[in-house]
């Protein structure tokens, strides 16, 4: 059986300027930090990033605090276009839009989730009542079903998805503790190349298989070395 274990730089070897990536996490929680660091080390630029938000900016907890999650990519100036549901916590996004160095597409959070899942699970789109009659409806097909209006939300694709597991086995079956789940169970599988960075790596069969909540068939590469979140 092909070995999926890689170093962070090996895993993103194919990542190139201008590509689209998905980054899991909610304000940094559940984001694979070692993969963010690897992208900056590799020096890839002009990325389109699909994520819930802009992570956390520098100095969130203290003066000495680094950015977290997608906040690292924003600070390094490697994002041309961010597709997210909420970017208010990271002033760099607003600044980038004003300076015209960055594009931002806002998607309602539940629709963002379904658009990612649709791509992962082979759907052509979903119909949601969310956003009807709002700016979020602009440019989207509207369909009336049994007297109610819905927006058609189409799938979002990406070249790479970058996810974070609490525990992952060597086949890629993984689980995320508590509120670190968020986008991890949706994005892993939704891109052409799906990378998991894990806190703990175990052998297949070492734990009760029912412990894992996402299937390893959706995971292409596994990187060890995620650290617990530090406040």
């Amino acid at each position: 059986m092909a070995n999926k274990i890689r170093t962070a730089l090996e895993a993103i070897a194919g990542l190139q300027d201008g590509m689209t990536i998905m980054v899991a996490g909610f304000m940094g929680t559940g984001t694979p930090e070692i993969l963010m660091d690897a992208i900056i080390e590799k020096g890839v630029k002009h990325l389109t990033v699909i994520c819930n938000d802009g992570g956390l900016p520098r100095g969130w907890y203290s003066d000495y605090d680094t950015p977290r999650g997608t906040g690292k990519l924003l600070e390094a100036g490697v994002i041309d276009h961010i597709i997210a549901s909420h970017v208010g916590l990271t002033p760099l996004v607003g600044q980038g839009i004003i300076d015209d160095t960055m594009e931002c597409t806002l998607v309602p959070q539940g629709s963002l989730v379904e658009k990612i899942r649709a791509n992962n699970f082979g759907l052509g789109g979903v119909l949601t009542p969310t956003g009807v009659g709002t700016i979020a409806a602009e440019g989207k097909m509207q369909i009336e079903i049994d007297g109610k209006m819905y927006l058609l939300e189409k799938p979002l694709r990406a070249d790479y998805s970058l996810c974070r597991a609490s525990v992952c086995d060597e086949f890629g079956n993984f689980l995320c503790n508590k509120t670190t789940k968020n986008f991890n169970y949706l994005m892993a599988g939704a891109a052409d190349h799906n990378i998991i960075a894990t806190e703990r790596l175990v052998k297949a069969g070492e734990l009760d298989p029912d412990t894992f909540q996402h299937s390893g068939v959706l995971v292409d590469m596994i990187v060890e070395g995620e650290k617990p979140w530090q406040i």
């Binding site: 699970f121 069969g205 298989p209 996402h214 068939v217």
Partner: peptide
């Protein structure tokens, strides 16, 4: 019999894996 690398999921995930081109 299930392999040591088995992963169990619900029917929507199962067919998501199927329809999504992961098979």
């Amino acid at each position: 019999k299930a392999s040591p690398r088995v992963n169990y999921f619900d029917s929507a995930t199962s067919f998501g894996i199927i329809r999504g081109g992961h098979v």
